[in-house]
């Protein structure tokens, strides 16, 4: 089947401009193409996969297609990184590069989305690569079971559009922010502790968060005392993903080099320019 025939197949099956999961699987059988290829072809024809119906109010078909063709790196696959990956797959990002050298352990069960009785002891990045396509078969995961460093960053981030900071120390964050600056990539920072969390975006040509992370290195990070409960990764990861979508669709003029601090104990939000 050539592209025009695939488009014809999809247009013939579509109802109200939507193409169902079954239609995509039928088309895969007919053509031997991947789920991603068929979703891409559908959206090029002006059809929307039914899974994105509830996105229609805020995303046009061309924007949904842009997200499918986007690639996001998630550095750290724990509390923040797991939920970030899940949300990115649901919004329809086509490629996720998930980096974490760690394995799921029992104390991750309180907050890490992909940590459960069955995944304990398994590498986090591998579990994400297995689970994400079950949520959205159009989202491919490249797992990297290695600690992040400035040396590995250049190779890992090749072809990536946005990088998400879901790390757990300022030392590695400094290397991450430096890598993003060298490669001119936007970085969406997130961090959590207890009832508190923060989100910020380092623009592709900025070193402001790099400087912030360097100045915070060696200080006593409060998560070691007050921990990280279930609700905080959920809140901060959601903001990180919303910011990522805005960067990819160029809708976030004004958000760069700002820090948003969330306090769920007093239910307040504070922001400032970095």
């Amino acid at each position: 089947m050539d592209k025009k025939e695939i488009m014809f197949f999809l247009l013939a099956r579509a109802k109200d401009g939507l193409i169902s999961l079954c239609d995509i699987y039928d088309c895969m059988k007919e053509t031997g193409l991947s789920f991603y290829d068929i979703e891409e072809c559908a959206m090029e024809s002006g059809l929307l996969p039914q899974r994105y119906e509830r996105n229609r109010g805020i995303l046009s078909i061309s924007e949904q297609l842009k997200l499918l063709r986007s690639s996001v790196a998630i550095v750290g696959c724990g509390g923040l990184g797991g939920r970030v990956s899940e949300l990115l797959a649901r919004i329809g990002i086509g490629l996720l590069v998930c980096i974490d050298h760690d394995y799921f352990v029992e104390q991750n069960l309180n907050r890490q989305f992909f940590c459960n009785i069955h995944t304990l002891g398994r590498p986090k990045a591998i579990v994400l690569a297995e689970e994400i396509p079950k949520i959205n078969p159009a989202s491919r995961v490249i797992p990297k079971i290695e600690p992040f460093s400035i040396d590995s960053g250049t190779e890992i981030f090749s072809g990536v559009d946005v990088v998400i900071d879901a790390l757990d120390s300022f030392k590695t964050r400094s290397e991450l922010a430096a890598s993003c600056y060298i490669l001119r990539l936007p970085l969406v920072h997130g961090a959590i502790a207890g009832w508190f969390g923060q989100v910020g975006i380092q623009a592709e040509n900025s070193i402001k968060f790099l400087k912030l992370f360097l100045s915070a290195q060696g200080k006593k990070e409060i998560q070691h005392d007050i921990g990280t409960p279930s609700f905080m990764p959920a809140v901060i990861s959601a903001v990180q993903v919303a910011e990522t979508v805005k960067i990819l669709l160029k809708r976030n003029i004004g958000d760069f080099d700002k820090l948003f601090f969330v306090d769920l104990l007093s239910l307040s939000l504070e922001s400032g320019n970095i």
Binding site: G76, A166, A193, T228, G272
Partner: peptide
């Protein structure tokens, strides 16, 4: 003046 502690968990 607003003062924030080091928050670094993920």
């Amino acid at each position: 003046v607003s003062i924030f502690p080091p928050i670094g968990g993920g």
